[in-house]
Amino acid sequence: MIKYTDEHEWIVVDGNIATVGITDYAQKALGDVVFVELPEVGVTFGTGDEVAVVESVKAASEVYAPLSGDITEVNSDLEGEPALVNTSPTDGGWFFKMSIADTGELDGMMDEAAYNDFVAGLE
């Protein structure tokens, strides 16, 4: 199952674990990513907390936790190759995995069709 937030994050749900990244729309808007500051494994975040920072050549942008839960893994490939966020936003450019404290939080999120409509409305 894949879900989307209006902050342009994607969430792939596998059992009790969510893998989180930013969408193609978001990476295009940010431009060339030169650094990603990732959270530490084991830290607990609440929905909407600042969990990561993406730096493009021009500016820094915060990434907010789409769900509440604990960080279980981060994508260490981004340390050496932050441009993966641009070249492979929904695959190799994932940010982190987190446990899902409350599956009910997924209910309010957009599915792929709804997100595509949302983005179409922005362009």
Partner: peptide, 9 residues
């Protein structure tokens, strides 16, 4: 601020 090429390129 930039064109489709992007700041890096």
């Amino acid at each position: 601020v930039q064109y489709p090429l992007g700041i890096m390129k």
